[in-house]
Design a protein around this nucleic acid. Structure first.
Lengths: 103, 103
DNA sequence: CGAATAGTTCGATGAAGATCGTACTACGAA
DNA sequence: TTCGTAGTACGATCTTCATCGAACTATTCG
């Protein structure tokens, strides 16, 4: 089974505007909430979303390029997980603050 | 001198998507950073911004309607300040996390 | 190899929104 | 009340982006 890390920004390259903009979209926030409940990562397709697979891929790419999540392949699947360490280090409190919000 | 509070959402009406979306725009983030350095509030016109007055008004309205800042009039001036208490109460850590980001 | 599965990429479309100029309102000062 | 100042509201324009379907890639399985 092949395993490959998808391209993503280094911690130093993460910009807060991009992170906030990424989190400010309802579908993407839904993805982030789902990932927060799965520290070990989750297959993209398993997240229930009100959009088509192509739109889902678009949002996952946006979140990945903003530095919010990391994705690696496992066979034909793509497993995503939150970049908690990086985000907590860069913006301590941001993620917990966002996730503590009533849904 | 007249003093009037501009309409804004109650704490309970603030939605995290709106807050994040409001913060995810560079000019608006610049406004928020300026307000963070002025707890007592600041006149809108005194914030140096790379946009025209009408665009500035648009962004201030967006931030106010999202619940990020509060504005009251003082004569012909409008004084804005961050709604720190409300935001910290709703999303503990979010604001500090955002503001701790390198600019 | 071929078929099935998971997911992406591309191009088009429509909606949202950032920006500006102009006209307008509100207030204070003369 | 007239003038100047601070700022808003409106309408237009232009850009960004969320969405989709269709075609494509990559991987596993038979």
């Amino acid at each position: 089974m092949t395993r490959k890390q998808l391209p993503q920004p280094d911690r130093a390259e993460i910009r807060v505007e991009a992170v906030l903009q990424a989190l400010g979209e309802p579908v993407r926030l839904q993805i982030v909430r789902a990932l927060a409940d799965a520290p070990e990562g989750i297959a993209c397709g398993e997240i229930e979303l009100p959009v088509t697979p192509s739109t889902r891929a678009h949002h996952l790419r946006t979140l990945r390029e903003a530095g919010v999540l990391t994705t690696h392949t496992e066979g034909t699947r793509r497993i995503s997980s939150l970049r908690r360490d990086d985000l907590d280090s860069l913006y301590p409190g941001l993620l917990t603050g966002v996730l503590s919000a009533a849904q």
